[in-house]
Structure formats: structure tokens, C-alpha cells
């Protein structure tokens, strides 16, 4: 139960990883450095920019505010696990079609926010979409197109 290094087993994008880690290692650094999954971005590293949004046991959370040791036994989905092989998720396609990607730094987090919303709410209204992406800062201020992409994806997913 106790050791100077914590042994963790985490399911990341349907692959189980077992690692011995420093107890202070964040889940964000675990994903990016230990597993090489650099799609999840490191912005402020303080919970303010929202660029490190991932899904932990189905809920959108900030990987920079979670110690990897706490996520022992959890299921994590990162941006690398959203597409089905070569086939993009409807929201990823909509982001491309709507021109919702500018510099791209916030894009993985915006997709993770949107996917979490659409999983529980197939017809989100504008307020719900704005609320869902409110915790992630787009430095290019491209919010309108991101909102359009989520709306467009929700319509596509209902077909």
C-alpha cells in the first residue's frame, strides 16, 4: 500500500499501463512524458486555462490538477482515444469543417469538452455549449466557430 514510488495501473484509451511513479507526478505529466501522449496540452499547469482536459471515468477533468497516483484503477480517455482508428469523431470532423481550429493549442481540450457534453446531451442549446467550453481558454478567441462545430456535430450525430 505504501512505497516511495507509487505503483499505478491506469486504463488509458483502452490500454492498461502499469508504472512506478513519483507520488507528486501529475496525471498530465504522466500522459505526456511517461506515455508520450502529447495531444493533451500543458498550458498554465494551474487549472486556469483548461487546455489539459481529459476524461477520467467518463467525466471531463483537468489533468494538471490530478496526481497520477490518485488515478490508480481509473479509466482515462485523451484526445488520442477519441477517433475510431482513422475515422474521426463527428465533433473532430465538425471542428475541421467549421474552421474551428486556429493555432490548435486549445483544440484537444475543446474536443474533450464537447464530446463529454454530447455524450449526455444530444441536443445542447447555445447556453449549454457555452457553459461546457467555458473552462477552456482559446487564445485565438475562436469561440464562435467552436460553438458552431459542437452544434453541427450534435445534428450530425442525431442523423
Amino acid at each position: 500500500m505504501t512505497s516511495s514510488k507509487a505503483i499505478i495501473n491506469i486504463d488509458v484509451n483502452d490500454t492498461i499501463y502499469e508504472r512506478a511513479i513519483e507520488p507528486t507526478l501529475t496525471l498530465l505529466d504522466f500522459l505526456r512524458i511517461e506515455l508520450g501522449l502529447s495531444g493533451t496540452k500543458k498550458g498554465c499547469d494551474n487549472g486556469e486555462c483548461g487546455c489539459c482536459t481529459i476524461h477520467l471515468d467518463g467525466r471531463p477533468v483537468l489533468a494538471c490538477l490530478i496526481l497520477a497516483a490518485e488515478a490508480q484503477g481509473s479509466k482515462v480517455v485523451t484526445i488520442e482515444g477519441v477517433a475510431n482508428g482513422e475515422q474521426l469523431h463527428s465533433l473532430q470532423s465538425a471542428m475541421v469543417e467549421e474552421g474551428a481550429i486556429q493555432c490548435g493549442f486549445c483544440t484537444p481540450a475543446m474536443v474533450m469538452n464537447g464530446v463529454a457534453l454530447l455524450k449526455n446531451n444530444s441536443r445542447p442549446n447555445q447556453e449549454e455549449i457555452k457553459e461546457c467550453i467555458s473552462g477552456t481558454i482559446c487564445r485565438c478567441t475562436g469561440y464562435t466557430k467552436i460553438e458552431k462545430a459542437i452544434t453541427s456535430a450534435s445534428k450530425e450525430m442525431l442523423k
Binding site: 483548461g50 482536459t53 467525466r59 471531463p60 477533468v61 483537468l62 477552456t136
Partner: peptide
């Protein structure tokens, strides 16, 4: 309170 992601944790 805070952002949706922080409220989930």
C-alpha cells in the same frame, strides 16, 4: 463554482 472540469473533481 469554478469551471465545469473543476466541478467534476
Amino acid at each position: 463554482i469554478a469551471s465545469p472540469q473543476i466541478r467534476c473533481k
